[in-house]
């Protein structure tokens, strides 16, 4: 009887937990999306409404001045173009070099495989550091060229390991064996069997690599001083921190109405920049998303 009543209560208990889960997730979703929403609606609102604190749920006094200022800012567009080029070109090159290596390292019969994997893994955890790397890049004559942003990080050890694990776990050796009997060599096995079967992990790698290029600014800060080849993120940093330091180090409380026109413009520009610079990666995401869980799962299971 007691047993029976417990059985009866169970669905009720689960129902409660289910509702707690749903409510928790909805709250988390709102908290995460809210900052982005604020930036988006502020970028299309009347600055006066923003500074009087009326823009917090919906845009007020629709106004595209922010985007007009953005269009006039030549530096930003140079940065935008450069970052797009570096991202596309850099990611393609990384894929071209990392994927074949991962495929080869997945072959258990390869002599010295363990050492080679260790050779790549080690670089993830120990590096020469900023200055020694800087000198290598400098001695190769790459400082102030786009190559300084592309070549040093060309082999992503983390993605190399993910891809290797994926090849090891998800493509049985028999498949290659069958192709080999048909006369296919190593390269044909790679291009015609391994590549088409590894789309999920390739998608994850592309997203990781592209994000790395699009988002990095430390390397650009260190290696690039010519504004014509500078990246978008460095321009964003400049815009954001410039005006802040001018403002913050002035005084604690400047009255909003006393803000100069240039500060007001910079403020608006910041909202628009956040929106416009986030678009490329957010656009890339839906193409990658469906492969995501599978790519990560098969890439991270240890043998």
């Amino acid at each position: 009887m007691k047993q029976h009543s417990r059985q009866m209560q169970k669905p009720k208990e689960d129902k409660l937990i289910n509702s707690i889960i749903n409510v928790a997730l909805i709250i988390i979703g709102i908290i995460v999306v809210y900052p982005l929403w604020i930036v988006l609606i502020s970028s299309i609102s009347d600055p006066a409404e923003i500074s009087s604190g009326k823009v917090w749920i919906l845009p007020k006094g629709i106004n595209i001045e922010a985007y007009k200022i953005l269009l006039e800012n030549g530096d930003l567009w140079i940065g935008y173009r450069n970052s797009l080029l570096y991202t596309i070109f850099g990611t393609a090159l990384q894929m071209l070099i990392t994927t074949p290596a991962a495929f080869a390292l997945a072959k258990k019969t390869l002599p010295g495989r363990r050492w080679l994997i260790l050779f790549f893994l080690f670089t993830m955890y120990f590096s020469g550091g900023l200055i020694p790397t800087y000198f290598v890049v400098k001695d190769l004559g790459l400082v102030n060229t786009p190559w300084a942003l592309i070549l040093p990080g060309l082999v992503g050890p983390y993605n190399l390991v993910i891809a290797r694990t994926y090849y090891e776990n998800s493509i049985p050796e028999d498949m290659y064996e069958a192709a080999r009997i048909d006369g296919a060599g190593t390269y044909r096995c790679f291009v015609q069997i391994a590549l088409p079967l590894s789309v999920p992990v390739l998608a994850v790698m592309i997203l990781n690599f592209a994000l790395g290029h699009w988002n990095s600014y430390m390397n650009a800060l260190v290696y690039i001083s010519d504004d014509n080849i500078q990246t978008l993120q460095v321009f964003i940093k400049r815009i954001t921190t410039q005006a802040t330091t001018a403002l913050e180090s002035g005084a604690g409380n400047i009255d909003i109405t006393e803000l100069t026109d240039s500060i007001r413009k910079t403020q608006l520009l910041k909202y628009a920049v956040v929106v416009v610079s986030s678009i490329p990666m957010i656009m890339l995401y839906p193409f990658i998303q469906k492969h995501f869980v599978k790519g990560i799962m098969l890439g991270s299971v240890k043998e």
Binding site: P35, L36, I38, V39, S42, L211, W214, N215, Y217, Q233, V234, I236, K237, T240, T241, T244, K270, Y271, V273, V274, S277, S278, M281, I282, L284, Y285
Partner: peptide, 14 residues
């Protein structure tokens, strides 16, 4: 998907 520079810009905007 949002860069460090932009994320921190949002922090500053807030």
């Amino acid at each position: 998907l949002i860069s460090v520079a932009v994320t921190m810009s949002i922090v500053i905007l807030f």
